[in-house]
Design a protein around this nucleic acid. Structure first.
Length: 565
RNA sequence: GUCCCCGUAGCUCAGUGGACAGAGCGGCUGCCUUCUAAGCAGCGGGUCGCAGGUUCAAAUCCUGCCGGGGACGCCA
């Protein structure tokens, strides 16, 4: 009961009205009524108020009363509270339809909220402004994690954006986030990469399981001299191959980091697979499972009893040849991550990894961690098509489209919007040609245009000698003003919902709605009018608040808010 | 065979328990002397895959089916 969003305050007021209705005997004192969850939502239709509560409908059965009668009792109590000055942000309440409570905000409540935004634009919409001092959880978000055996492809784009967007939304929701990239620096693929480099340098054919991409050819001439000379002993030659692989992999990883940075995606921690064994984490994880009786030997291999936790089969941790499975590294990584104090782990994985979700979560539980603290978000498939032809994304075959190339044509803003406006788990088809052709029609420009238009108005005002009013107080008398202000004031609620759902579609939908409302306002209301300085000042304040909400919504998605277009 | 995701307008997708289902793109018709027409106004477009069930209320929850994609290794 200490909400600061308009929606939250309205919910508090309805809750208080419910209590009053019970206390005064207008409603029965049933436990269901006392513990009822208050939901306020935005009605689809304008005439249904600014927000609506369905409380009366939900209480009909437990209270054995008709919904309209319950609603009327709560509405009466709310009006009494309002008369006492305790009605929260609500000015009027109506009972409508089957028993909804349709609520309307007082103009000054909306004005106050927008004044808050203008007073501190940097924190507007972020959780700190919603609930200062609330406990935060520290979340590890691991994403991309593509092996550095080749440049990022367009196939990696989704994971990069989904992970980055999620991290931004969680941070805005008040959580601490560490962005992490896990990469393989010691596996067979690294050796294959090294073998490919050496083969190219020495004029031999690239091995069948080697890497055939152009980037390998470009890397080969730069191999350090100490690795360029063939060694006599087979063992030494093998070591040279590994070293060449590690060298190439390191170069590629640097390139990946640069590619991601160009998209506005940065990482706090890069963890290598090799470090998990070198620092004993895999051993520790295995020991813990063994101590708990969750391992057994069969056919010379060591198995984790994953079925004991609901998996459909047990999983090998150590192969019969003594080598570790990928799964062994996974569980070592789990224990390593928790050792750093995270409360929650999120993995962004492709849909093809769904089969490994259960075993990792089960192992976490077996090691004594809270299973619900290990969460996998699986991204849907992105099916790239060009000229009706499906594009393969094989780094080994070298048949891929580099992420850098596509983004150079699309632009990071358009790509970000594209992924932010869709659910992470839906499959989608992307026709490369259509995507390039339509990049200029991307809805992101509609929103950015609204921002640029406001910037133009503010410039015009400055040139005209008009300035925005310091407060919006009393400026929402007109219907056009109020409609726009109501939406601009909603940003914190949108962020709250996005963080709770761990999704960003709501933010793109909101930004579009706010832009639409502004464009309509622009049509109907002249902002800069030297003949009406007082009205100009209040409209400038409103438009400035709108600009802040637009800029922050875009900023939350890592998208720029241009001053001019 | 088992498991996971998806199925909403011509296309790409929002909406996942509330009051006559939305946006963008595409199609059609209007609107620039006036703060940016990357805009605005309007028209047309829907068996929310199908069938049952739960509920005062279902695109939304449950069951079954159909269709599309994916996963089922001592690969990574």
């Amino acid at each position: 009961m200490n909400a600061t969003t308009l929606r939250g305050l309205a919910g508090d007021a309805v809750g208080a009205a419910l209590e009053r209705a019970i206390a005064s005997g207008r409603l029965p004192d049933a436990p269901e009524a006392r513990s009822a969850e208050i939901e306020v939502s935005r009605p689809a239709k304008l005439e249904h108020g600014d927000v609506a509560a369905n409380l009366a409908l939900r209480l009909a059965r437990p209270l054995r009363m008709a919904p309209p009668a319950i609603a009327a009792a709560i509405a009466d109590a709310l009006r009494e509270l309002h008369a006492d000055g305790a009605g929260g942000p609500i000015s009027t309440v109506e009972v409508a339809g089957p028993g909804f409570l349709n609520l309307r905000f007082a103009d000054d409540a909306i004005e106050n909220v927008l004044d808050t935004a203008r007073a501190d634009p940097g924190s507007w919409g972020r959780a700190a402004a919603i609930a200062a001092g609330s406990p935060t959880r520290h979340v590890n978000v691991e994403f991309v994690s593509a092996n550095p055996t080749g440049p990022l492809t367009v196939g990696n784009a989704r994971g990069a954006f989904v992970g980055d967007l999620l991290a931004r939304v969680l941070e805005a929701g008040g959580q601490r986030v560490t962005r992490e990239y896990y990469f393989n620096d010691s596996g067979t693929q690294v050796r294959n990469l090294g073998a490919s480099i050496l083969a190219i340098r020495e004029g031999r054919p690239i091995p069948e399981d080697g890497y055939h991409g152009e980037y390998v050819v470009e890397l080969a001439p730069n191999l350090p001299p100490e690795l360029a000379v063939a060694r006599d002993a087979a063992e030494a030659e093998d070591e040279r191959t590994w070293a060449a692989g590690r060298w190439a992999s390191d170069r590629i990883r640097t390139g990946i980091e640069a590619s991601l940075a160009a998209l506005g995606v940065r990482f706090d921690v890069w963890t290598s697979e090799g470090s998990l064994t070198a620092n004993g984490w895999v051993d520790r994880a295995i020991a813990r499972l063994r101590d708990g009786g969750h391992l057994y030997e069969q056919d010379g291999a060591t198995w984790f009893r994953s079925t004991a936790f609901g998996d459909d089969k047990d999983r090998v941790v150590i192969r019969s040849n003594g080598s570790l499975t990928y799964f062994a590294y996974d569980i070592g990584y789990v224990i390593e991550k928790f050792s750093r104090g995270f409360d929650h782990l999120i993995y962004i994985w492709g849909a093809d990894h769904h089969g490994t979700v259960a075993r990792v979560r089960n192992a976490a539980e077996a090691m004594g961690f809270d299973k619900s603290a290990v969460e996998m978000i699986l991204t849907g498939w992105v099916h790239f098509v060009e000229n009706g032809q499906e594009l393969s994304m094989s780094k080994r075959a070298g048949t891929f489209i580099a992420l850098d190339d596509l983004l150079a044509e699309l632009g990071a803003d358009a790509a970000r919007w594209y992924f932010a406006s869709r659910g992470a788990n839906v499959n989608m088809d992307v026709d490369i040609e259509v995507a390039k052709r339509q990049s200029s029609e991307n809805p992101v420009y509609y929103v950015q245009y609204a921002h640029a238009r406001i910037a133009a108005i503010l410039r015009k005002a400055a040139a005209t000698g008009l300035t925005a009013a310091p407060s919006l107080a009393g400026s929402l008398s007109g219907a056009e003003e109020r409609a726009l202000a109501l939406i601009a004031a909603r940003l914190p609620e949108v962020v709250e919902d996005a963080a709770a759902a761990q999704e960003t579609q709501g933010i793109t939908t909101y930004a579009t709605e706010l832009a639409t409302a502004f464009h309509a306002f622009y049509r109907d209301a002249r902002v800069v009018d030297p003949d009406e300085p007082a009205r100009s000042a209040s409209r400038l304040a409103l438009v400035d608040a709108t600009r802040i909400s637009l800029a922050n919504a875009l900023g939350l998605l890592g998208i720029s808010a241009p001053e001019a277009m």
